[in-house]
Amino acid sequence: MSTSTLSGPATPSGPAAPSAANGVSAPARRRRGPSGVLWLVLHQNRPAIRSVAILLVLVSAVLVAMHVLIQDRIGTMQQTSCYTPASWERIECRVQLGRIEMLTRMFTDILQPAVTAAPVLIGMFLGGPLLAQEYERGTVRLVLTQSVTPRRWLLTRLAVPGATVLVATSVLSALTSWVWWSDIYRGPVAFDPPFQGFTYPVLGLAPVAWSLFGLALGVLVGQLLRRTVTAVLVSGVVVALAQAVMVAWRPFFWPLVEEEQPYNNMMGGFVKPAGAWLVEDGVVRADGTRLMRDQCFEAASVCDEAPTSWGQYHPASHFVPIQLVEAGLLLVLTAVVVTVVLRRLTRAGV
């Protein structure tokens, strides 16, 4: 149709020629490097990727330094035979112990909560604004009126920050797990069971799976709200809520071990194995009825007479299977959230 219009009496011969020549030479002029939507998304994400990289390098440096320092001090303690708890009454050993304790506390009291909060922060500052800003500024309309399909654009738009988060949290988790395992859990002082509130989320798959899910959840929140600032705030609340809900479900991701022990009032009830997660405990009375720990508090005398205590717990060996189940669940949820976002983009209109 366009060529037929050209055949009118005023056919422009001159101006048509250079533009046709340009059409041929355009691909040749294409620069090297990423192209298409990937170029756009990388261009958009450059500041975010840079910030994540800087942060990762800093945290990694801190973790490595922490490991080196702790190992150095352990070495010194062993040379001065201060390593065993029996020697800690000596004043010079207490000083050395104090130095290690300080480092350990830095890990458990600062780094662990920070890494636990990472998925929330990722949801807030990477996920929430990702689409909210595109909707707020209308740029989603700009992109969707180019030749690219909404699906391709969205998947690339998510894949780049997704890959960034995946790589960064994998490195982070590898380092935290390593420091925790070699210096904290098996260190001379710290007894930091893996299932604890700020310990579990910094080990193994948890930081990776949670960060990806936090990102996806933030994106969905941003798409629903279409306002950047609100999306940032609401994403934080939603991801934190999801974490809280997951903590409540976590005991049921793997069968609990149930055990009865002779009731030992001195020890305060059921004694769990080292590193285990005691989910539920109480006493078994002479008539065979079970009482929960809470019921003992109501009337302590009821429990004092009981011959047996019981407990349900996850031994440390359940850590890996529980993490696998949780990570799998999170990845499925992430996929569901991404599908919903994609559907909303293609169906609901922008």
Partner: peptide, 15 residues
């Protein structure tokens, strides 16, 4: 103008 015989189109060149 062409109908009035004042101008003529020459295909590919112009009017």
């Amino acid at each position: 103008l062409e109908r009035e015989g004042l101008v003529e189109p020459r295909p590919g060149l112009g009017t």
